[in-house]
Amino acid sequence: MTTSHDAPKPAQRMEERLYKNRYLVDEGRPHVTLRRRAIDSDELKSLVRLCPAGCYTKVERGRVELSLDGCMECGTCRIVCQATGEIEWSYPRGGFGVAFKFG
């Protein structure tokens, strides 16, 4: 069932969808980090499809990679992976991260 974790082609590329959003990036201080296990759990793999900002992608050998560009701090990944312990989630430092223009 590994193929099910590939995100289907949306009508628009994620970068295009997100590029109008405003972010204040806290360089070098990611607010979400992965605590790798020997094998990525199904929960972690499912985030390739579930993360609404497309932060999780599948790279070589089926491993999941996290890139926080575009993160909207919704908390979906935190809840999905709460049992597996693979995600360390905190809010960005005050003032950093997504800054909604309209919300």
Partner: peptide
């Protein structure tokens, strides 16, 4: 995207410019 392209909804937002995409629980 499916909702935006639904035949009953697409005409209502045609030529609109999306200025923000957000997600929330």
């Amino acid at each position: 995207d499916r909702m935006k392209s639904h035949p009953s909804i697409a005409p209502l937002i045609r030529d609109g410019e999306t200025k923000e995409y957000v997600a929330h629980l």
